[in-house]
Design a binder for these strands. Structure first.
Lengths: 338, 338
DNA sequence: GGTTAATGAACAAACGATTGTTCAAACTAG
DNA sequence: CTAGTTTGAACAATCGTTTGTTCATTAACC
């Protein structure tokens, strides 16, 4: 069995409350230096570690936060989790992970997590389109930090500046001389999808390149969707686009596959740029130019914010993270038609 | 505040112990049908949910298991986690996630997780090469299930039949007429790396293809390592290999990138096959032929085994999962030199 | 030296559940 | 009608902490 306060107290010949006070460094009461030392010696000797469960019961705080993610096998979410786990661990919090798929009816997932007092707070990573999210928050009595999207009614949201990211990507293409720039946008008009579309449109307009809605295609999440859309787009074009700005990594990859299949060389005839950077950007051929987004940082900041809320501090209701940088690789190049 | 047993008891006009017995369906004591119904009504009315922390303290069981992973942004590990989370949730267990990097000195990570009574058991996902693992298990007093590798001294290990997977991959290449088959093996000689190498060698031998150690290269984990190794290998070959069997997904991707860069067409001049299947196999060009391994299932079986151990059942000390199937795609084709 | 103040540590009551024990009321039987 | 047995539910201890309160000592002061 694990050693308890009682074991330490017995060995040191004091009351458990005294041991507790020494360990908690209780200010309201003083302990003689000799006694304190004796206790600390015993604590070390017995390798005492406080029982987190008992403490959680007494304090009504478990020092555990829950993170709810829509899917795990997505590098973006994985990075968010990694960032959150790291930050939480540093602050002495544990991370309980929970899965919330689009399909499964998990309307009481949050309440279950919380009502059974397992978690002090919740980190919720949102899919762009999950509209049910807000109503599922009803009746959840712990602080919630929303990741990857802004929801007005929530006390704290941490998300990327996707608008800026799209501008970076688009400007890069414009700088290379491209004018016929296709945008493969996220279907469903979610938070990030909309911002990226707007960023793309405004970047064009600001630089005097006419915005043509016909060059925008909304595609689903899978690479296959982007592949199909790209094929259709190319086959039906009178004037071939010279560049593609893909809203996500998988979209970019899907587009690239179609281009390969149609024998269109990159970046010679068509440049491709994507958003989100991961190891996978390097395994594509050609390696993919992307706008790197601070996903880890997003997880980290969200965890920090939640822990701040839990310790009674005030936090900004919105934390917006700027894109890190344009990762220049081999999928983009100067426009040959310019 | 959340409702407690006391709230329910007061409302129903009974003692808390009676409420508890009704909810636990205690056999040792009977409760009058009327009382039982009254209690159940109140429970529903107040939406009572037991406090998991209090129960954990009393029962010395938290119904939480910890999963320790070496990295998160790896689709294989992500799938394992997803499988484990799902199975755990179904059995009423929560999953605490913890990160254990190769570098960080986390020799007491396991003990910390356990001694503070946060988890009833541990799922440890192993990196192939992590040799320190075993000694870090010392003094950990909860059941541990090791995932992705066999460790003799452990009571339960769940892992893939990597030997068989390698044979599947190699046989596929042999069937296509290939004889000069390179193997890009995992560096460090870890559990899976060794099995795959052996599977490759034995498949060749069994089919009468001479095994030539010069055709095996050990490479590190990153795609870049495989890319470099492939380039060196090709440039120094008298007889060009006609196929590559890459031990992992990233290895395959790295090799493919080098082949692209050297202008060697796939699969016309060189076929490539990898192990592990994910969305990423579909975004490569050409799409990658792989042996699909049951990673989700591995996580699921490990969680089930751990929960079985925790409920006192006996479990097999080894659970070996066979490769699912060869996913035939466009990176492999008949040998043109045959 | 006797009263008061400060010190140091024990005592005890929670937190919310589970579970062995006790006990009153109702029932059975002789 | 009384002694003995069931039945149904309350009582109480416990899990390992934290923290307000009490209580001896010792020190301090006039």
């Amino acid at each position: 069995m694990a050693t308890t306060l009682a074991d330490v107290a017995r060995e040191a010949g004091v009351d458990i409350s005294t041991v507790s006070r020494v360990l908690r460094d209780d200010k309201t009461q003083r302990v003689a230096a000799r006694t304190r030392q004796r206790i600390l010696d015993v604590v070390k000797k017995l390798n005492y570690q406080p029982n987190a469960v008992a403490r959680a019961l007494r304090l009504a705080r478990s020092r555990t936060i829950g993170i709810v993610v829509p899917q795990l096998d997505n590098p973006v979410f994985a990075e968010i989790i990694a960032g959150a786990e790291h930050a939480a661990a540093e602050l002495g919090y544990s991370l309980l992970i929970s899965h919330r798929t689009r399909s499964s009816d998990d309307s009481d997932l949050f309440r279950r997590l919380v009502n059974t007092n397992r978690v002090d707070g919740l980190l919720v990573v949102s899919f762009d389109e999950d509209m049910q999210l807000i109503q599922d928050f009803q009746g959840v009595e712990v602080p919630i930090v929303v990741i990857n999207r802004k929801i007005e009614s929530m006390s704290c949201c941490v998300y990327h500046n996707s608008y800026k990211a799209a501008q970076l990507a688009t400007n890069h293409l414009i700088d290379l001389g491209h004018r016929q720039i296709v945008h493969l946008a996220g279907r469903g008009g979610g938070f990030n999808a909309r911002l990226r579309w707007n960023g793309y449109r405004d970047a064009l307009t600001l630089r005097g390149v006419p915005y043509d809605e016909a060059l925008v295609r909304t595609v689903g999440y899978a690479a296959e969707d982007a592949a199909t859309a790209t094929r259709v787009l190319i086959e039906n074009s009178n004037v071939l686009p010279t560049a593609i700005f893909a809203a996500t990594f998988l979209t970019a990859a899907g587009a690239m596959r179609s281009l390969h299949e149609m024998g269109i060389p990159m970046p010679d005839e068509i440049s491709v740029v994507g958003i989100h950077d991961a190891e996978f950007a390097l395994i594509l051929y050609p390696t993919l130019t992307t706008v790197r987004m601070p996903n880890r940082e997003m997880g980290r900041r969200a965890a920090l914010a939640l822990c701040d809320i839990l310790s009674g501090k005030n936090v900004d209701s919105e934390i917006v993270l700027e894109p890190e940088q344009l990762m220049l690789r081999n999928s983009t190049g100067p426009c040959r038609q310019g």
